Computed example of a mutant assay.
Amino acid sequence: MPTIDRRSLLAGAAATTALAATATRARADAVSASPDLSGKSILITGCSSGFGRVGAEHYARLGAKVFATMRNLPRPEAAELERLARDEDLDITVLELDVLDDEMVARAVAEAERQAGGALDVLVNNAGIGISGPIEVQDMEATRLAFDTNVFGYYRVARAVLPAMRAAGSGQIFAVSSQLGRVIVPYGGHYSANKFAVEAMFEQLAYELVPHNIDVTIIEPGGYPTRVWVNRNIYTSALKDRAAEVHKAGYPEIVARMGTEDGSGRTADVMDIPHAIAEIIAMPPGTRPLRRAVSGSAIPQTEINRVAAATQVAWLGRSERLGPLVRAVHE
C-alpha cells in the first residue's frame, strides 16, 4: 500500500489556516474569482435537472471535460443540454446512466474513462429522489427504491470509478448529501436515513482513500428550488394511493398533505452548489474539506459536524494504525 504522505502539508500553519477558513464558509458565492478547471474530467449523475444540470454547465464553462449522465435516454433534457454545449462550444458529453443498474453504471464509467484517456479526475454523486410521509406509511417498495437510489446508487458509481483513480493515485469524489443527513425533520420518509447512510459511507471512504491520494467531500445543501419537489410529489402521491389503510390511519392530517409539497417559495440560488464544488475541486489535493454545508439560510448541522470530527480524532486519532487516516481527513 502507498505511504500516507498526501496531507503532510497540513502541518504547516498556512495550510491549516486556509483549511479552517474554507470549512467555515457556508456560501460558495463568497469566492471572489472563478476557479480554472481546465484539464479536469468530471462525471456527474442526475443531470436532467437541478444541481446536476447547472453543475454540468458551470464546470464546462470553467474549462472541464464534463460527462453529464442521466437515465431514460433519449429525452428532451439531454437534447437541450447537448444543444447548449454545441452553441457555447462546451465540452459536455451526455451519457446514459441509471444508478439502479449495475451494468449501465459500468458501461457509462468505462466510456467516460475511454474518452478522458484514463481515470476520471472527479465524480459528483448527485442523482437522488425523495419520498415523504411518516416512516410507518413507507411500504417496502418505497423503502427499497429510496435506499437503492440515494445510497446504493452512490455506492455503485463510486465503486466503479475507484479502480482507475487508485491506479492513477489521484481523484476527488463528491457525495451530495443534505442538511437532513445530520438533522432530522419528522414525516420526511426515509430521506434522513438515506442521507445519514451517505454521510457515514463517504466519511469512511475518505479515511480509506487517504493512502491513495483520493479526496472525498460531502456536500450538505439546505432547501433549494429544484425539480426535486415535483418528483417527490409524484413518488409520494403514488405511495399514498397504494399504502395500506392500517398504516395511514395513524397519521390522517399528514397523509392528507402527502404529495402536495411545494418548494416554489424557496429563493436560494441553486448555483451555490456548483460554485462550492468547483471551488473545492480547484483546491490543492489534501487540503479539501470532508464536509461543506451550503445553504441560503440556516445551517443547523454546523455544530454536529464540528463535534463529530472532534470525536473521531479524540477516539481514533492516537491509534497507530487508524490515527493517521483520521487525522489526515480532519486536521
Score class of each variant (00 low, 15 high):
residue 113 E to S: 08
residue 114 R to Y: 00
residue 115 Q to K: 12
residue 115 Q to L: 15
residue 117 G to Y: 08
residue 118 G to A: 12
residue 119 A to E: 01
residue 123 L to F: 11
residue 126 N to D: 14
residue 128 G to Y: 03
residue 128 G to Q: 10
residue 129 I to N: 01
residue 130 G to H: 10
residue 130 G to E: 15
residue 132 S to L: 13
residue 132 S to D: 13
residue 133 G to M: 06
residue 134 P to T: 01
residue 134 P to R: 08
residue 135 I to E: 07
residue 136 E to L: 13
residue 137 V to W: 03
residue 137 V to N: 01
residue 138 Q to D: 10
residue 138 Q to M: 15
residue 138 Q to T: 13
residue 139 D to G: 01
residue 139 D to F: 08
residue 140 M to T: 10
residue 140 M to C: 01
residue 140 M to F: 05
residue 141 E to Q: 08
residue 142 A to L: 11
residue 145 L to H: 13
residue 145 L to G: 02
residue 147 F to M: 11
residue 147 F to E: 03
residue 148 D to L: 02
residue 148 D to Q: 14
residue 150 N to F: 11
residue 151 V to Y: 14
residue 152 F to D: 11
residue 153 G to P: 00
residue 153 G to L: 04
residue 155 Y to H: 13
residue 155 Y to E: 15
residue 155 Y to V: 07
residue 155 Y to C: 15
residue 157 V to S: 01
residue 159 R to L: 11
residue 159 R to F: 02
residue 160 A to I: 01
residue 163 P to R: 09
residue 164 A to S: 15
residue 165 M to R: 08
residue 166 R to W: 02
residue 166 R to I: 12
residue 167 A to M: 05
residue 168 A to T: 05
residue 168 A to E: 09
residue 168 A to V: 00
residue 168 A to Y: 04
residue 169 G to K: 03
residue 169 G to A: 07
residue 170 S to K: 15
residue 171 G to Q: 03
residue 171 G to H: 05
residue 173 I to D: 02
residue 173 I to Q: 02
residue 174 F to D: 04
